[in-house]
Amino acid sequence: MKTNNTYFLFLLFFCQIVFCQNSDREEIHGIVQVDSAAVERVNIVNKTTQKATSSDKNGNFTLFLKEGDLIVFSAVNLVTLQKVIVQSDLEKTILLVQLQTERIPLKEVVIKEESKITAESLGIIPSDQKKYTVAERRLYTARSGLLDRPLNWISGRTAQLKKELAVSEKEQLMVKLEYLFEENFYIETLKIKKDYIRDFQLYCIENNDFVSALKSKNKTLSKFYILTLAQNYNKIIVYEN
């Protein structure tokens, strides 16, 4: 009998605590979104009261809150958000919470040649066969054949295709260069102004030594050449201005 009375008193005391915690708090309805899309299963914890809930399939959640409460929103692949409730939050019909997707930066990706699955490794084409870009194939076609070559030369098509090939090669070099160094490297290390980065890259791919290092995927050597090129380029810009 004494045990039952003790249990009853404990339950009554616990209910009073819960009631006191919520008596000065308002029931707030909120929605969790990422890029305007509702997010399900986001863990929402009121660190002040240690009460927790989670968002449903429409991103909806409900919590008892008051000004000054610290709310933590967390989920897999999302950036954890800690929000302190202010008076304006309590005055809103719906508390809209925007979260961001967790992004994991990759500093460097190394692709091992032996791990590649290619047409050569599958035996579809001979391993020693030369690979041609679209521009190279067009030029090869224009130069082959008994009649094609003189006719294309007379019409100027071969000269035009040579120009297209040169442009295509430079575009490929620019793509490699864009992935090799980040924007901050140009601005902070090379002292190239942001508006001049593209022009400087074009300046670099006109240098044969740098192009050779770039084609060989030698980042160390490429960095060595680009440091020298940056010094020369900055002198040119100062002179022109």
Rank of each mutant, 00 (worst) to 15 (best):
residue 95 L to P: 05
residue 101 T to G: 14
residue 43 N to V: 15
residue 127 S to K: 09
residue 130 K to P: 09
residue 94 I to M: 14
residue 135 A to T: 05
residue 106 L to V: 14
residue 124 I to F: 11
residue 67 E to L: 04
residue 163 K to G: 00
residue 163 K to E: 00
residue 82 Q to A: 12
residue 103 R to D: 13
residue 37 A to G: 13
residue 63 L to G: 03
residue 85 I to W: 03
residue 33 Q to G: 08
residue 115 S to Y: 09
residue 124 I to K: 06
residue 143 R to N: 11
residue 95 L to V: 04
residue 93 T to W: 12
residue 56 D to K: 00
residue 39 V to F: 04
residue 73 F to C: 02
residue 135 A to C: 09
residue 107 K to C: 10
residue 141 T to K: 08
residue 66 K to E: 03
residue 122 L to T: 08
residue 162 K to N: 06
residue 109 V to K: 11
residue 72 V to L: 10
residue 155 S to I: 07
residue 54 S to T: 15
residue 72 V to E: 11
residue 60 N to R: 13
residue 41 R to P: 00
residue 140 Y to K: 13
residue 85 I to P: 02
residue 52 A to F: 09
residue 48 T to W: 07
residue 147 L to R: 07
residue 94 I to D: 04
residue 96 L to R: 12
residue 32 V to F: 00
residue 131 K to I: 13
residue 154 I to C: 03
residue 55 S to C: 06
residue 64 F to K: 13
residue 49 T to V: 04
residue 93 T to E: 12
residue 156 G to T: 07
residue 91 E to C: 12
residue 136 E to S: 03
residue 147 L to S: 04
residue 68 G to P: 09
residue 127 S to A: 01
residue 144 S to D: 06
residue 33 Q to S: 14
residue 43 N to C: 10
residue 112 K to C: 09
residue 134 V to Q: 14
residue 51 K to S: 08
residue 145 G to H: 02
residue 95 L to T: 02
residue 51 K to A: 09
residue 66 K to A: 08
residue 76 V to C: 08
residue 81 L to W: 04
residue 45 V to R: 12
residue 109 V to I: 15
residue 97 V to W: 08
residue 166 A to Y: 09
residue 44 I to L: 06
residue 101 T to V: 15
residue 107 K to Q: 13
residue 73 F to V: 06
residue 148 D to Y: 13
residue 30 G to H: 09
residue 129 Q to P: 05
residue 127 S to I: 11
residue 77 N to E: 13
residue 64 F to C: 11
residue 46 N to A: 03
residue 148 D to C: 10
residue 113 E to N: 07
residue 96 L to C: 01
residue 159 A to T: 10
residue 161 L to V: 05
residue 88 S to P: 01
residue 52 A to L: 11
residue 110 V to T: 14
residue 111 I to F: 10
residue 68 G to I: 00
residue 88 S to F: 05
residue 165 L to Q: 03
residue 89 D to S: 05
residue 112 K to G: 08
residue 69 D to P: 04
residue 93 T to V: 15
residue 127 S to N: 06
residue 70 L to S: 14
residue 150 P to H: 09
residue 61 F to N: 04
residue 166 A to P: 01
residue 140 Y to R: 04
residue 39 V to S: 08
residue 41 R to W: 14
residue 71 I to T: 07
residue 127 S to V: 10
residue 87 Q to T: 12
residue 85 I to Y: 01
residue 162 K to D: 06
residue 80 T to L: 12
residue 73 F to W: 06
residue 164 E to I: 06
residue 44 I to C: 07
residue 70 L to N: 11
residue 114 E to F: 05
residue 56 D to E: 03
residue 72 V to M: 10
residue 82 Q to I: 15
residue 117 I to P: 00
residue 119 A to S: 11
residue 57 K to W: 13
residue 101 T to S: 15
residue 65 L to I: 03
residue 100 Q to N: 15
residue 130 K to M: 05
residue 110 V to H: 13
residue 87 Q to E: 14
residue 63 L to V: 06
residue 30 G to P: 02
residue 134 V to T: 12
residue 94 I to S: 02
residue 118 T to A: 07
residue 116 K to S: 02
residue 155 S to C: 01
residue 41 R to A: 07
residue 145 G to R: 02
residue 93 T to C: 11
residue 49 T to F: 00
residue 93 T to K: 12
residue 135 A to G: 02
residue 85 I to H: 06
